Amino acid sequence: DPDTRIPVINLEDGTRLVGEDAPKNKDLVEWLKLHPTYTVDM
């Protein structure tokens, strides 16, 4: 689902973004380019 929010984690300080704070699936690739310290939180 393009509107599903994907949890991400900041590799530098461990900050996790989940729920309403997390980027949407459809925006994920662009969002990660803009926030290079974050990666998808598995």
Rank of each mutant, 00 (worst) to 15 (best):
K24T: 12
V18S: 14
E30T: 13
A22L: 03
M42G: 11
K24P: 04
K26L: 02
D1W: 00
D3A: 07
L34E: 14
T15D: 13
L32W: 02
V8E: 03
E20V: 09
W31V: 06
T15C: 05
R16Q: 08
H35Y: 02
T15G: 14
T39C: 09
L28S: 05
M42Q: 14
L34W: 07
I9F: 12
W31E: 11
A22G: 02
D13S: 11
G14F: 07
T39A: 07
H35W: 01
D41W: 00
W31D: 11
L32S: 08
L28M: 07
D1F: 14
T39E: 14
P36H: 03
L34P: 06
V29M: 11
D27A: 05
L17E: 06
G19W: 02
T15A: 14
P36C: 01
N25R: 11
V18C: 14
T37E: 09
E30P: 06
T39I: 10
L34Y: 08
E20I: 09
E30K: 06
V40W: 05
N10G: 05
H35N: 12
G19L: 03
G14W: 11
T37V: 04
P23Q: 08
L34G: 12
N25G: 10
V18H: 12
N25S: 11
G19A: 07
E20P: 07
V8K: 05
N25E: 12
G14V: 15
V18Q: 15
L11H: 15
D27R: 01
P36R: 05
E20H: 03
R16T: 11
T39L: 05
P36D: 01
K33H: 08
L17S: 04
G14L: 04
T37L: 10
H35S: 02
V29F: 09
A22R: 04
V40H: 06
I9S: 11
R5S: 07
D3N: 13
Y38V: 01
L11D: 14
V40S: 10
G14C: 08
T39M: 05
N10C: 12
P23V: 01
D41C: 03
R16K: 14
A22V: 01
D13I: 00
K24H: 11
I9Q: 13
Y38K: 06
D1V: 09
V18A: 08
K26H: 15
N25D: 11
K24V: 04
D41P: 04
I6L: 01
R16F: 10
L28R: 05
H35V: 01
L17A: 03
V40N: 06
K26F: 03
L28V: 09
N25M: 11
D1C: 07
D1T: 00
I9L: 14
T15E: 01
R16V: 14
V29L: 11
E30M: 07
W31P: 10
T15N: 15
R5A: 13
P2E: 13
H35I: 00
L17T: 07
T37C: 12
D13Y: 07
D27E: 08
R16A: 12
T15Y: 03
V40E: 08
P7N: 10
D27N: 13
Y38P: 00
W31A: 10
R5N: 06
W31F: 15
V29N: 15
V29P: 14
H35F: 01
T37D: 11
E20K: 11
N10T: 04
V8Y: 00
L34R: 13
P7C: 06
L28I: 10
K24W: 04
V40A: 15
N10R: 05
T39V: 13
G19V: 02
I9G: 10
R5D: 01
I9R: 14
G19F: 00
K33A: 15
D41G: 06
V18L: 10
L17P: 00
D21A: 07
L11S: 15
K24M: 15
R5G: 05
P23W: 00
D13G: 07
D27I: 04
K26I: 08
L32E: 06
